[in-house]
């Protein structure tokens, strides 16, 4: 865990309400796929936890959806503005479990952390397949970027792009291990449907983001865990989703 004052270097709208932000001056950070950062947005009391989408040297990319006044303020920040950030939060995905043909499954703003994961798995020589789910064609983002690192299957609920339906309707066969991130109903559907081992990234409203407040506790089969600290990534076998 590190504290750093980063500089906003770019903000770009990817869709109507999904933004990509680049933060520079992150320094010597050891950021793993699936980890998150916690941002102090000017004028707001609590930080906002956001997953890491990509890291390039001294620059970090995040992607977020505007859902309230915090993310709205964040989306309105200008290049050059300072942003205090806590880095290296959360456990991240376990790349050593990937096998040779890892399957990445993301829904909506659950997709960004899988991008950095795809990049790292590709570097390790893995044959990556990504299933990316959206509501409709106008909400697509990063589908071309993912193609740099593997095969991409797009789904939309209304069928306006890719396969009609949910990610759980377009799962390929023959994969070695899965990594998922998305809305809870999607994750629970995958938990039931997939018959290979894998990991899910969870989210929760957080107070601190570094394990102090017990705001984001989650009861697993192995007892209570903090999503910010022992998570956000959990092995499927510890999740209490059998019913």
């Amino acid at each position: 865990m590190k504290q750093k004052e980063c500089t906003v270097s770019a903000v770009k709208a990817l869709t109507e309400n999904i933004y990509e932000m680049k933060l520079s001056d992150i320094g010597e950070a050891c950021i793993v796929p699936g980890s998150f950062v916690n941002l102090t947005i000017p004028g707001l009391f609590l930080r906002r936890p956001i997953s890491v989408c990509d890291v390039n040297g001294d620059e970090l990319t995040i992607i977020f959806r505007v859902v309230g006044h915090g993310t709205e303020k964040l989306s309105a920040m200008e290049p050059g503005e300072k942003l205090p950030v806590l880095l290296e939060l959360g456990n991240g995905y376990d790349l050593s479990k990937a096998g040779e043909r890892p399957l990445l499954i993301g829904g909506g703003v659950g997709i960004p952390p899988l991008y950095y994961l795809a990049k790292k798995l590709h570097e390790l020589g893995k044959e990556v397949t990504a299933v990316l789910g959206f509501n409709t064609a106008s909400e697509l983002f990063y589908t071309e970027e993912f193609q740099r690192y593997g095969k991409v299957i797009v789904t939309t609920v209304d069928g306006s792009a890719g396969v009609r339906g949910f990610v759980s309707d377009a799962l390929p066969e023959g994969c070695s291990f899965f990594y998922a991130c998305g809305p809870l109903p999607m994750e629970k559907a995958l938990y039931k449907k997939l018959n290979i081992d894998g990991q899910f990234s969870l989210e929760e409203r957080m107070g601190c983001g570094f394990g102090a407040c017990m705001g984001c506790s989650f009861m697993t089969k192995l007892g209570s865990k903090r999503i910010c600290r022992e998570g956000p990534v959990f092995d499927r076998e510890v999740l209490p989703w059998d019913e």
């Binding site: 009391f45 609590l46 409203r205 957080m206 107070g207 017990m214 705001g215």
Partner: peptide, 23 residues
Amino acid sequence: RFGNPTPRIAECASGMLNAVGLQ
């Protein structure tokens, strides 16, 4: 004690609400 169900945290102007429930 596990405490209360989540969400346990909410924000407000110049502060926050918590309902951790003595975990």
